[in-house]
Deep mutational scan, measured.
Amino acid sequence: EVTIKANLIFANGSTQTAEFKGTFEKATSEAYAYADTLKKDNGEYTVDVADKGYTLNAKFAG
């Protein structure tokens, strides 16, 4: 089991951190699915991958 950390950075400057656990593939998929649920209210996002894929920095356009 691994933990994927998602740093969510919103256009207004606020941030949120979420963690997803499971296999690498499952946890990564859940992190992206969570970011997708936030698109409606926060706009499209881009992701910078860090820490060999164990940290995802998602920046929302607003």
Rank of each mutant, 00 (worst) to 15 (best):
D51S: 03
A35K: 00
I9Q: 08
D36K: 05
T3D: 02
D41G: 09
E19L: 14
N57M: 07
A33V: 06
T37W: 11
E30Q: 12
I9F: 14
K5F: 10
Y34I: 03
Y32S: 02
G43Y: 02
N12C: 11
I4Q: 00
E30D: 14
A6R: 00
A33Y: 07
D51V: 01
G43D: 02
L8G: 03
D48A: 11
T37E: 11
A61D: 11
Y32F: 11
T23L: 08
S29F: 13
K59R: 14
A50Y: 11
S29G: 10
T23G: 06
F24N: 02
D48H: 12
A18L: 15
A58W: 15
K5S: 07
G13I: 03
T3K: 07
Y45K: 00
A18E: 09
A27S: 06
A18H: 14
A35G: 02
F10S: 02
D41L: 13
K39C: 08
F20R: 00
E30L: 14
I4H: 02
D48Q: 13
S29A: 15
A11D: 06
Y45A: 03
A18Y: 14
V47T: 07
L38T: 01
I9S: 08
S14C: 15
A18N: 07
T37Y: 12
G13C: 10
S14V: 14
L56G: 02
I9D: 03
V47L: 09
T17C: 13
D41W: 13
S29K: 14
D41Y: 13
S14R: 13
L38I: 05
N12I: 05
Q16K: 11
I4Y: 02
A61R: 12
D41I: 12
T55G: 02
E30A: 14
L38F: 15
T55L: 07
A31W: 05
A27W: 05
E1K: 09
G43V: 03
A58K: 03
T23R: 06
E1W: 15
T28E: 05
V2M: 05
T15V: 14
Y54L: 13
T23Y: 06
F24H: 06
K5W: 10
E19A: 09
D51F: 03
N12K: 04
A18F: 15
K21G: 05
V49A: 07
I4E: 00
T17M: 10
T37N: 11
K40C: 12
N12R: 05
T17H: 11
N42R: 11
G13R: 05
T46I: 11
D41S: 12
K52S: 14
Q16Y: 14
D48F: 13
V47H: 03
N57T: 14
Y54P: 00
V49C: 08
E1F: 14
N12S: 08
N7L: 11
E1V: 14
Q16M: 14
N57E: 06
K52R: 12
A61P: 07
E30Y: 08
S14K: 14
K52N: 15
F10L: 10
V2I: 10
E25T: 09
V2C: 11
A6S: 05
L8K: 01
G13A: 05
S14D: 13
A58P: 00
T28V: 12
D36R: 04
Y54N: 05
A58M: 15
N12F: 05
K59V: 14
A58T: 09
T28H: 06
N57A: 04
A50P: 03
N7F: 14
N7W: 09
N7G: 02
N42H: 15
T15W: 11
F60L: 00
Y34W: 15
G62D: 07
L8M: 13
A11P: 13
A61W: 14
A35E: 01
G22T: 01
G53D: 04
A58G: 03
F10I: 02
G22K: 01
K5E: 04
V49W: 15
K39V: 15
Y32V: 06
V49S: 08
A6F: 15
T17Y: 14
Y34E: 00
F60H: 00
T37G: 12
E25Y: 09
A33R: 11
Y34N: 01
A31N: 01
T17K: 09
L56W: 08
I4A: 00
T28I: 13
E19V: 14
L38S: 04
I9Y: 13
F60G: 00
T28S: 08
V2F: 06
Q16H: 13
E1S: 11
E19H: 13
S29I: 12
E19I: 15
V47N: 01
T17W: 10
T55A: 04
G22W: 04
T23P: 10
L38A: 08
V2Y: 06
T28K: 07
A27D: 01
Y54A: 05
T17D: 04
N42A: 11
N42K: 10
E19Q: 10
N57Y: 13
G53L: 01
N7T: 10
L38W: 13
I4T: 01
Y45H: 02
T37Q: 12
A58S: 04
D48Y: 13
K40A: 13
N42C: 15
T46Y: 10
N7I: 15
T37V: 09
A35F: 15
F10M: 07
F60E: 01
E25S: 10
T46D: 07
A33T: 08
Y45M: 04
A61Q: 13
D51K: 03
F24T: 03
A6Y: 05
K21P: 03
V2Q: 04
K39E: 05
K39A: 12
S14M: 13
G62K: 08
K21L: 07
Y45S: 01
D51Y: 04
K5G: 04
E44H: 10
F24K: 08
D36E: 13
A50N: 08
N57L: 08
T23E: 08
Y34M: 06
L38H: 13
T15H: 10
F20Q: 00
A18C: 15
L38N: 05
G62E: 06
K5Q: 08
T55P: 00
L56D: 01
A33Q: 09
A27F: 03
G13V: 03
G22A: 04
N7D: 01
Y32A: 02
K59M: 12
K26V: 12
K21M: 09
S14N: 12
K39F: 07
Q16L: 14
A11T: 08
F10K: 02
K52E: 15
T23Q: 07
D48V: 14
F20N: 00
S14G: 08
G22I: 03
G43E: 04
K21E: 05
F24V: 06
A18S: 08
E1R: 10
G43H: 02
T3E: 04
D48W: 13
Y34C: 06
D41C: 15
A31E: 01
F60K: 01
S14W: 13
